[in-house]
């Protein structure tokens, strides 16, 4: 590739917890990877390997102890404009006192020179785009979990971020909804040429959505392998998942994760 990476994760390390009696636990140990513009990257790893911690570091919500996270050639100190986050705990990351439209408008704080009316209009447009026509003026707690996740995605898109970070966004929804939202993510990513980094424990989901899968080790986490996913686009829930290459990659990743010694 010739383009400059939009995100460079350069030998980062992060320890958490610990107090006067207990030493902090090393969660991330010497982890590096890049993301090119337009890439859809999934990060998978054994459970408890610090995926969420890694995502918080990428978002600038946690400071790294060593190394650096460089976004658009600036080292992160705080959450920068241009990175949107969809949180795992979507039902609580949506603000329950704001209707869905207002929740999407909430994401537009950093847009310069856009009037309040324009923000409203754009928010409605985005909600319709993620399939929520007719639910714009509901409160988040009045709609289903899958719809809440769509609101959260619309809000992240509303910030016009150049990098979208997704933290297990589909861990808590049922299988049918998960497939629907996966396809929504794919179409949005293609349409907006959105660079995405998805953290998930679901290997099939990772392969289905991504151009590249980053496999992590157990704690202290580092990158075990970068796997390029060369599957035909557009992806399709039935055909892609039964594609021989898909099955081969799935076995490769699962074997890799299974070979790791168990944490605790």
């Amino acid at each position: 590739m010739t383009t400059a990476p939009i995100l460079t994760v350069d030998h980062i390390g992060k320890a958490l917890g610990g107090d006067a009696r207990k030493a902090p636990t090393q969660i991330i140990g010497d982890l590096s990877f890049d993301a090119e513009p337009g890439e859809f990257i999934s990060v998978v790893g054994p459970s408890g390997c610090g995926k969420t911690t890694l995502l918080m570091c990428l978002a600038g919500l946690l400071k790294v102890d060593t190394g650096s996270v460089v976004f658009e050639s600036n080292a992160l100190q705080a959450p920068p404009p241009g990175i949107g986050v969809v949180f795992q705990d979507y039902s609580r990351s949506l603000l329950p006192w704001r209707r869905n439209v207002a929740n999407v408008v909430f994401g537009m704080k950093r847009l310069q020179g856009v009037s309040e009316a324009d923000k409203q209009a754009r928010a409605r447009e985005l909600l319709q785009h993620v399939g929520l026509r007719g639910f714009e003026d509901f409160y988040p707690w009045q709609v289903s979990g899958g719809m809440q996740q769509r609101v959260a995605i619309a809000r992240a898109l509303a910030a016009q971020s150049r990098l979208l970070l997704l933290d297990e966004p589909l861990a808590a929804v049922d299988a049918q909804t998960r497939a629907d939202v996966q396809d929504l993510l794919l179409s949005l990513a293609a349409e907006y040429k959105q660079t995405c980094v998805l953290v998930t424990h679901d290997v099939e989901e990772a392969l289905y959505l991504s151009n590249r899968v980053v496999v992590l080790s157990q704690r202290p986490t580092r990158v075990l392998r970068n796997i390029t996913v060369d599957l035909p686009n557009p992806r399709d829930q039935l055909r892609t998942r039964s594609h021989p290459e898909f099955l081969r990659l799935r076995e490769e990743v699962l074997t890799l994760i299974k070979s790791l010694p168990k944490a605790h």
Binding site: M56, A59, G60, L61, A78, P79, P81, I83, G84, V85, F87, D89, R92, S93, L95, F106, G107, K109, R110, R155, A159
Partner: peptide, 18 residues
Amino acid sequence: VASVQLRTADSFGYGGWD
């Protein structure tokens, strides 16, 4: 206040009094 909500605020650029 739930830390998810605080992180949401941080990630969308709401700091300090905001």
